[in-house]
Design a protein around this nucleic acid. Structure first.
Length: 647
RNA sequence: GCCGAUGUAGCUCAGCUGGUAGAGCAGCUGAUUUGUAAUCAGCUGGUCGGCGGUUCGAAUCCGUCCAUCGGCUCCA
């Protein structure tokens, strides 16, 4: 008998060779029907694999991320089997589970495939799933494995095998399909009740753009049809919130082929919104001791040679700008840091001056690959809410705190409630690849960790993810649909102060090198507005939204009163429009609802007599009549609540 | 940059196997004077992404370039 410890720390005895499924059955039949895989001593494996020693066991179901992963990985195999049945002779690359489903990279040879074929593949998958084929694990020798795939002509699998050690190779067999696979898998294909193939795309073999491009088929499966239906609704909702669509509908920004790809044009409403975001941050930063600076959009090539960016990115950037002077070259500014370093150097700095905090909404230009461009999230010209803090190594911690306070204020004002702080530190096994003294790194890494703990934030630490020039902290927000977006970033830099020979005179009257901190709480204005659009579905917080209210006169007779209301509100700094078209109230309301204007103020005979407006809240319906002054106070109060102390 | 799909009016989209373009919304004009998500009528609007080819004839077939979308690679 062996002792099995369950997650609630209860210990049960089972005979040697017990499987996860047996354990589940001993608890309840229902559980056994839902077990997808098990965790044995923190390693996920098949629920059908026998256990021979005492172990800590967790049964994994659809409610566990690892359980889902097992199911999706098995689904990739099942899809491969279906595709092999429909397209004999195809060759397989890899087929892993991913965050939302799975994919398989397949070489279809000269057989054409498109998303039109999804229907018949899905049908085949479900047909195979209903066969409840078991996933059978087999240990094979390397030569056996190579023989198998050689006879099948699967050169990709053979290449994968070459990288594996003999003795560690396993096959999984389900139905007519056998695959090189570490596992684990679900007990049988019967768990897969609903399937949706999502899209199809090219993908380089082993991620190498010099190698052959395979066809990647993406899909997702579920244990219940209802879950698939819910997922499809989610996809629909995400589509509705696409910032590119909303940006067009709400007239915030546009693109023009003539202007150039990846170069957004901010329309009046979008520009005003962006300006409000900037004003908000400027106010916050002023309080936090930042000083605004301004820099030109181009810089001499020497500046970027000093910073090192020319050597690293010069070739893949916008071509340099030449002048009538022989050999003189300028670059479009790809980042603001080198300019700010030069501002720091304008005069000698004393330790008493530090920290120096230089802020700029700096527009930069980067030549992103054409296929990379995407709405406002990936563009070739964008504006960073940039600032550089020059401080002593001892001040790093306090400066981090200060920046985090700013980020938190922003998240609050924009209603991002769910976020993760990701801290990127050195690779502990590879310390020599980092620039800067061990002592300073130590200090900064400790400071960052401590700040996160003191603020009690949901933190993940990524070892080895730091840039060669310093550790960093990124903020990942979850939007209203649970999707993760990277926004703000704080980055320590030991490199640029060195390259630009930045100095300050310490209390010991000696020269010292300051630490530089890059930080951008929004990331970029473009990206931030995009995320905000997708998060709010275009219903911005009241303080930020382009138009806060619209006056809707019932008919021309009430035009004068409507204009009076308009003036009073605009004088009270409530951004208000008027819809004086010759239309019925219903039409005006519908249009205002679609433009997502937070408050509609219907005025007619009654309102004119009483000096009121009938307030209708976007998405909520009629709130009834209010005195104009009451409405103003109400709006001002709402805004105060949203902005907190910044107002 | 690479693979695949797509490109018709300001927007959303029809247009079968080639026979010189159509709807709804928006816009304009007029009627209507309207009470919480679309009043009615008329009108305007397109070198069918660009260029080249096949054909008596091309939105439709072929080539090429451009752009968009989905991925891959990339992201200082």
């Amino acid at each position: 008998m062996i002792n099995i410890t369950l997650p609630d720390n209860s210990v049960r005895q089972f005979p040697e060779g017990v499987t996860g499924l047996d354990i589940a059955k001993s608890i309840s039949e229902g559980l056994a029907r839902n077990v997808l895989s098990i965790e044995v001593n923190n390693v996920v494996c098949d629920a059908t694999r026998p256990i021979y020693t005492d172990a800590k066991v967790k049964l994994l179901t659809w409610n566990d991320a690892e359980g889902k992963a097992t199911m999706w990985h098995s689904s990739a195999h099942l899809m491969a089997e279906a595709i092999e049945a429909l397209y004999p002779g195809v060759k397989f690359g890899i087929g892993p589970d991913i965050e939302n489903g799975f994919y398989y990279d397949i070489d279809f040879g000269d057989q054409p495939i498109s998303s039109d074929d999804f229907g018949k593949i899905e049908k085949k998958i479900l047909e195979l799933a209903r066969g409840k084929q078991n996933f059978v694990r087999k240990d094979v020798s390397k030569s056996e494995a190579i023989n198998y795939f050689t006879s099948k002509g699967d050169e990709y699998k053979i290449e994968l095998l070459e990288g594996l050690d003999d003795g560690s190779i396993t096959f999984y067999e389900s139905g007519k399909f056998t695959d090189l696979c570490r596992g684990p898998h679900i007990p049988d294909t019967g768990f897969i009740k609903a399937v949706k193939l999502l899209n199809i795309a090219g993908a380089y073999w082993r991620g190498d753009e010099k190698r052959k491009q395979l066809t990647r088929v993406y899909g997702v499966t579920f244990p219940k049809q209802k879950e698939l239906d819910d997922y499809l609704v989610f996809l629909e909702e995400a589509k509705k919130r696409d910032h590119r669509k909303l940006g067009k509908e709400l007239e915030l920004f546009a693109f023009s082929q003539k202007v150039g790809l990846g170069l957004p044009l901010w329309l009046p409403r979008g520009a005003a919104l962006r300006e409000r975001l900037e004003m908000f941050l400027k106010k916050v930063q002023k309080k936090a001791g930042y000083e605004q600076v301004m820099c030109p959009h181009i810089g001499n090539v020497e500046l970027y040679k000093t910073s090192g960016h020319y050597q690293k990115y010069g070739e893949s950037s916008f071509r340099p700008i030449s002048t009538p002077v022989e050999g003189e070259e300028f670059f479009l500014k790809p980042m603001n840091c080198p300019h700010h370093c030069e501002i720091y150097k304008v005069k000698p700095r004393s330790y008493r001056d530090l920290p120096v905090r230089l802020a700029e909404f700096g527009t930069v230009y980067r030549y992103e690959q054409s296929g990379e461009l995407h709405g406002l999230t990936r563009v070739r010209g964008f504006t960073q809410d940039d600032a550089h803090i020059f401080c002593t190594p001892e001040q790093v911690k306090d400066e981090f705190k200060g920046v985090m306070d700013i980020v938190m204020l922003i998240f609050k004002a924009l209603d991002f409630k769910d976020f993760i702080v990701q801290i990127s530190l050195r690779d502990p096994d590879n310390r020599e690849k980092y620039i800067g003294s061990d002592e300073n790194w130590e200090k900064a890494e400790r400071a960052i960790r401590e700040v996160a703990i003191e603020r009690n934030l949901n933190t993940v630490i990524e070892l080895g993810e730091a840039a060669f020039y310093g550790p960093k902290m990124d903020f990942l927000v979850k939007d209203a649909l649970g999707r993760k977006w990277q926004l703000g970033t704080i980055q320590v830099d030991y490199n640029l102060p060195e390259r630009f020979e930045l100095e300050y005179i310490g209390s010991d009257n000696q020269k010292h090198r300051p630490v530089m901190i890059h930080r951008a709480p929004f990331g970029s204005m473009e990206r931030f507005v995009a995320v905000l659009l997708e998060h709010t579905a275009g219903k911005f917080p009241l303080w930020l939204t382009p138009d806060q209210a619209i006056v809707l006169p019932i008919s021309e007779k009430y035009q004068d009163y409507a204009n009076k209301v308009l003036n009073v509100l605009n004088n009270a700094e409530i951004r208000t429009l008027i819809d004086d078209r010759n239309e019925k109230a219903g039409k005006k309301i519908r249009d205002a609802e679609l433009m997502k204007i937070p408050f509609m103020l219907v005025v007619g005979e009654r309102e004119e007599l009483d000096g009121t407006v009938s307030v209708r809240k976007q998405g909520h319906g009629d709130l009834g009549p209010q005195k104009i002054e009451d409405f103003i106070r109400f709006v001002q109060e709402e805004i105060k609540n949203e902005l907190g102390e910044i107002h």
